[in-house]
């Protein structure tokens, strides 16, 4: 089995058949391990490639457009004759739709998580959780259709002046989409709270609701917060719902009743047209993508750190 001395023996051709077999086997084993390692490294490679491509194309963009104009400019009109590259309107669109989505998903997701973890019977949980998973599996383009052709017309009955493209409808539908993310991560956190803590509360004569609200939820705070942060990251990166239903007009507004483009919707809009490769317009989607990547990466990292904290606690 001593591999280091084997090559010499091989050269001398004095090798016994048994050792030769061992050698072949060892080489094969090493080769397989190497191939598997390459497969694992593909994850590192992908991250690296994403960062490299975004930085490379953005670099070209920022040679023409100053960072100051990019971050402080209030107009985003790369496709106009008189092009402006201020990303503020795209950020405002992204933040507004995400805020609406969270306003829906945070309360509904949290209440759902408390119900699942503290109230639901084993059977209810067994039925409900797969359904929530199915909801996660629905393609986002279908939600886009729903927002544009079902929710918006319905909202227009309440607000007759609501335009066909608006952030309210897109945000609401996106909110429903991310409920399962919040409820499942938050539920995990609550179920990680040791039973002894619940027993302590029940032994004092507390009801289920009191135990859930006063003991379990505070004990699971970090996990619940992590769920919110991961949900923000989802909302910020969501594309099809906003591209279809919120419109693609970059507009610096925080009014949910307006239509406005998000970062993602802008990327879709440019990709749909035929901007020549290497043009500043082409590069602009990478600059926008870089901002998006940094935002989501930031939220994901914070989310994971906060989440780690609760898994360590118990």
């Amino acid at each position: 089995m001593n591999t280091t001395t084997m090559p010499n023996e091989l050269i001398n051709l004095t090798i016994s058949p048994r050792l030769a077999k061992n050698l072949r086997r060892n080489i094969k084993e090493r080769l397989i391990e190497f191939i598997l390692m390459l497969a694992a490294l593909s994850a590192v490679f992908t991250t690296f490639a994403i960062v490299a491509i975004l930085l490379y194309e953005s670099f070209g963009f920022f040679k023409a457009i100053s960072l100051v104009e990019f971050f402080t400019g209030k107009e985003w009109t790369p496709l106009f004759e008189d092009a402006h590259y201020g990303i503020m309107p795209l950020i405002s669109g992204t933040l507004t739709t995400s805020a609406i989505a969270l306003a829906v998903a945070v309360p509904v997701g949290t209440i759902g998580a408390i119900y699942l973890s503290e109230f639901a019977s084993h059977k209810t949980r067994e039925i409900t959780k797969p359904i929530l998973e199915l909801l996660v599996g629905v393609p986002t383009i279908a939600f886009g259709y729903f927002a544009l052709l079902f929710v918006t017309p319905m909202l227009q009955k309440i607000f007759p002046e609501l335009p066909g493209f608006n952030m309210l409808s897109a945000g609401l539908v996106m909110g429903v989409m991310i409920i399962p993310y919040i409820s499942s991560v938050a539920e995990d956190a609550m179920r990680a709270v040791p039973m002894s803590m619940r027993e302590g509360s029940y032994a004092m004569g507390a009801t289920r609701f009191q135990t859930a609200l006063r003991v379990v939820t505070p004990a699971a705070t970090s996990g619940i917060v992590a769920a919110y942060i991961l949900a923000i990251s989802r909302a910020v990166g969501e594309t099809m719902v906003v591209a279809v239903a919120a419109g693609q007009q970059p507009l610096l507004t925080f009014n949910p009743m307006d239509g406005a483009a998000t970062i993602t919707a802008y990327i879709v809009q440019v990709a749909m047209g035929d901007l020549p490769h290497g043009s500043i317009g082409y590069q602009s989607i990478f600059a926008a993508g870089l901002v998006l990547f940094i935002m989501t990466l930031g939220f994901n990292i914070i989310g994971h750190v906060v989440r780690k904290k609760y898994t360590e606690k118990y």
Binding site: E199, G200, S201, A203, M204, P218, A219
Partner: peptide, 16 residues
């Protein structure tokens, strides 16, 4: 439980 209270094997204070 309001009449009969309980102290457990392992201390189980609340996160308060």
């Amino acid at each position: 439980r309001m009449r009969i209270s309980m102290v457990f094997q392992k201390p189980n204070p609340f996160p308060k």
